[in-house]
Design a protein around this nucleic acid. Sequence first.
DNA 1: TACAGCAACTTGTAATTACAAGTTAAAAAC
DNA 2: GTTTTTAACTTGTAATTACAAGTTGCTGTA
Lengths: 245, 245
Amino acid sequence: MEDNEKYQETDPGLPQYRKLYEVLRSHILNGVYREGDLLPSENELCTVYGLTRPTVRHALDELVREGLIKKQKGKGSIVHALPTGIGILSVAGTTTALGDRNLETRIITGPEVRRWEEDFFFPLPDPYIESGCIYMERLRLVNGKPLFYDISYLPNINLPRFTTRSFENKSLFDTLRRHYRIEVTGGEQRLWAIPATPEIAGYLQINPDEPVLHLERKIDTNRVGYSFYSSLYCNTKDYALTGKF
Amino acid sequence: MEDNEKYQETDPGLPQYRKLYEVLRSHILNGVYREGDLLPSENELCTVYGLTRPTVRHALDELVREGLIKKQKGKGSIVHALPTGIGILSVAGTTTALGDRNLETRIITGPEVRRWEEDFFFPLPDPYIESGCIYMERLRLVNGKPLFYDISYLPNINLPRFTTRSFENKSLFDTLRRHYRIEVTGGEQRLWAIPATPEIAGYLQINPDEPVLHLERKIDTNRVGYSFYSSLYCNTKDYALTGKF
DNA sequence: TACAGCAACTTGTAATTACAAGTTAAAAAC
DNA sequence: GTTTTTAACTTGTAATTACAAGTTGCTGTA
């Protein structure tokens, strides 16, 4: 399929620069462009996709920000090495972070509506507390080995039919994006190295008191005032967490 | 001093958007704008600094990328302040009472020129290997407690008098920026939760096999082809690592 | 008073034009 | 054949214009 055709059929609701970004991103991730390759020049992209340079540059800026390309004046946009570890420190859900690996998701609990926990690990706005919390516990396995034990908390605001959706082998980020048009724009995270509790050790199939990585994340979205939260325990014995900044 | 005067006297070699970025950045960090405040609107900044919107927006984009502001359509640019520093480097306490944390730096080794280690944790370009490595081990303490054990590796290329500089209580990033005009533009990092070796445990004053966080970082700069490296061990018993994304 | 609607803001997207500056390879000079 | 110069690329910076879309507060109406 030609770039241009694929470009035409992308979501018409998205801005132009975003559509181009999506196309280029998928091409990089799918190996159409390989590490070290040069992307088509900005002017080429302009003519191929019928855009102007500021728009094309906006799309490329996003790719730079994501670490997928590096630009060099006078030369071009160079496709950057893909992270070999698990990229969770930047804007990505665990599903994208794991890429094409053999990822399996196992639901432990939920999704179900319940009250927010007392002394929640991030301060909660009052409207969140009133409307309750969609709670979900998931285990992420790579090649059969459990790597992440993930507890998600979403404010139960304007997410119709959410608890009836299946999340086996599906990305939470993608579900939010496709069904609710919620896109992740950023967030905060805290992390510690802690000894595994017996419960965590059980989930991650390691010995109690072995070091695990604990992340608490607040994830902001394009819905004004809508953030959700995640508490994540990672077994880093075989895979490192990676991030770009 | 008026914004405009301060703006005039900034480095004439920098592009306009960068100068505006520096001014706004320092104002945010110095508390001229406080958390939650709105920056002047883009159009106001245009007239005050004699720039056009694309240029002003470029400057604001950098601040967004750095996490210093958040923008909201229809409203404005909201100062987000909080952790300075890049990526995951900033420290925030688990207790709220850490505003007066005092950071102390203790040099363990170096800075000195030596050969790069065999099997370095990131692949090294050939020119780096030939010119050798500026090596430095530092211990960072907060309120007298050791938190970080940091090993830095810098390519020994065009950094006159570097090994004679004092790094007690000084930031490596700031030194590079002020004396060598090297600015950090991004990088990669990998991290694990590992049991402390006896050596690491000694430095961090914890028991061996207690969990510590291990980061390996490659840090890119505005000098084309110049990156440096850091291997970092963190005691996260009392303080979490925090980051924005 | 309460509310609807409008006006005046804000940022977001996008085309257009121009020139500066770094890179590369072919052409010209030696 | 080797070196130098040049021309044709590349991305970087920046002004200008226009409209879309979200937010806020004021104003006129009920």
